[in-house]
Design a protein around this nucleic acid. Structure first.
Lengths: 347, 347
DNA sequence: CTGTTAGCGCTTTCAT
DNA sequence: ATGAAAGCGCTAACAG
């Protein structure tokens, strides 16, 4: 009646197997592996641990999950049409912070990228394999709202990165960097240097952070009244060549402004290189700013003036908040905004 | 006897609830949600689907996992001492390919970064929550071997990225890009342009890909015999400033060679910028090459000559192989090497 | 096509 | 300090 020995290398050791071999009950094994030291004598614990090691027992979380209705799993959903969704420096830094933070507490992080269209069919929405969610969503405000509403229906707590929590959603919190503050720092920096004709450069596919940065720039320029102008350039994508094409056709039509304010450093560097190649002098003829200051930020010549992003800290914070929420039953803060810093280059 | 309505927003709908409300047995529900259309009449299916929608039922994978002993989860382990482990362009591209590939097949990807020292305590090794593993490991060959041996003991199939499968390990496969071929392409490119004094620039913390690239360069230079020289510079880390410091002190001692061959593009760009800042002309006085050609590759002036990496495809391939292995019971190929291409810059 | 039974591995509750 | 029983939600196997 034993399992066939031929089929599989290892016949899977269960908690009961350990109990039998150690001559104790299943409960004792459970108490040992969960460090409930108050309930197990030292002698028994040692014997059990030896047996566990000898048999190579590893607990099966499926049994535990079923019993406890908890999976010790958090899912990060990135809503982005690009298949290389995660190959963005910002996303990546958040992810690192989040993953480390959760792993330290013995939570696993599931990673999933999806387009807006496919979100509702994704298994994240169709099954309940996680205790909580994180989301970083692109798209227009209305689409993002719809995303958050869909997630809210799942009845799992979730953290939104880089976007606010809609008023009607209860069990969610948001973690952002001060994109508005950063946009203002850059705009004022340029204003102080006498710039009046500005161009905002971003990409067609919208991200909430871009919206906030642009809005902050607009607002800062209002102080100049009619002395300032702000035009907008929207590249087909954030890719190097797409950005350069967009800038080229803008400049062909409208000439070179006093400053290009760019949605992020990737865009900023593409603009810097295009200008330098065309013989424009930076910062004498024209200035350029970026956003986020990840490691490649100083690759261009001149080095980009930009904003330093606390993305890794955002990830850690989101993770901490989620763990805390799972422990206490509620989010302590609904929105948290981390400060950013101006990082002066020579652009 | 019903559950308290006060406690939780939604009392969790189970398969049995749906069965009762739809007036069918639990099995029928199971058959519907698993698309076993042969076993359910169209009418019944429709009624069940309506009930599922009405109750907002979502299957609990814990029950399924327990019953099937399968989790539909794959874990990617990155062994790297840096907390920003995932913030590397190469890792990130692999991750995107892997995640997309698995998600398409309704597998989830768990992401975990760990140092060599902490690996054995990580919950990946202590519990059995996944069907398969992927690993990308840094460290010296002996450490990496130890990592793979530890994973092999888990008795889950796994895919190794960017490193070979040790001979004694059965149920694993490896997926690599042709780093040796790339190294040779670069070395020969430089040799053809008359370079004879070479410097290899990499970082202290070892990665298998760096080893292979360097070895290939060495080998290519042997064809020149004593006419060629190859020195090695090892930065404290791959960071911009660390690389520049290392190059600075090398040049102070040994002067500027004909060419710097760099472990990756990040290092290459740091070297290019340092040289340009010091007034060296590229490529007239000295040449520089990188490796991988991710988006930031063209940020430096002059643009780096480098190798184009198929990292996203590596990730997809690894995922496909794992799924195939889970389906068929064995890996079809033990090692796969994807080709790379020379990408000419002006450096 | 549909229903019944049994049990996956774990932990809570209650008994000892 | 330790054990026994029950059940979490699901599906394979078989019966009808």
């Amino acid at each position: 009646m034993a399992l066939k020995k031929t089929a599989r290398p290892k016949p899977k050791v269960t908690l009961k197997d350990v109990a039998r071999r150690a001559g104790v009950s299943a409960m004792t094994i459970s108490n040992v592996i969960n460090n409930r030291s108050a309930k197990v004598s030292v002698r028994t614990r040692q014997r059990v641990e030896a047996t566990i090691a000898r048999l190579g027992y590893r607990p099966d979380p499926a049994g535990r999950s079923l019993r406890l209705s908890r999976q010790f799993l958090v899912e990060m959903i990135i809503v982005d049409p690009s298949p290389t969704f995660v190959a963005d420096a910002f996303t990546t830094s958040i992810l690192a912070g989040l993953s480390n933070c959760l792993n330290r507490r013995d939570y696993g992080l599931i990673l999933r990228g999806t387009s807006f269209e496919h979100l509702s069919q994704s298994s994240a929405l169709r099954s309940r394999q996680t205790d909580a969610l994180c989301v970083m969503a692109s798209g227009l405000p209305r689409q993002r709202l719809e995303i958050y509403q869909q997630l809210a229906k799942l009845d799992d707590p979730f953290v939104i990165f880089q976007d606010g929590v809609p008023a009607e959603i209860d069990d969610a919190a948001s973690v952002m960097q001060d994109d508005a503050g950063g946009g203002a720092l850059l705009a004022n920096h340029l204003i102080a240097r006498g710039c009046t004709r500005f161009v905002w450069v971003s990409q067609r596919h919208p991200w909430p952070a871009f919206e906030k940065r642009e809005a902050a720039v607009k607002k800062a320029l209002r102080s100049l009244g009619s002395r300032a102008s702000l035009r907008s350039v929207e590249a087909d994508s954030g890719d190097y060549t797409a950005v350069q094409q967009a800038v080229a056709s803008h400049v062909a039509r409208d000439g070179v402004p006093d400053a290009f304010l760019c949605g992020n450093d990737q865009i900023g560097i593409a603009v810097v290189n295009w200008l330098v190649d065309k013989g424009h002098r930076i910062p004498e003829d024209v200035r350029v700013t970026g956003f986020n200051a990840f490691d490649f930020w100083r690759y261009s010549r001149p080095v980009l003036t930009t904003i330093e992003s606390p993305a890794y800290a955002l990830g850690e914070l989101g993770g901490t908040m989620l763990i805390e929420r799972l422990r206490t039953g509620r989010f302590e803060k609904r929105e948290t905004v981390l400060p950013v810093q101006l990082r002066l280059g020579a652009s």
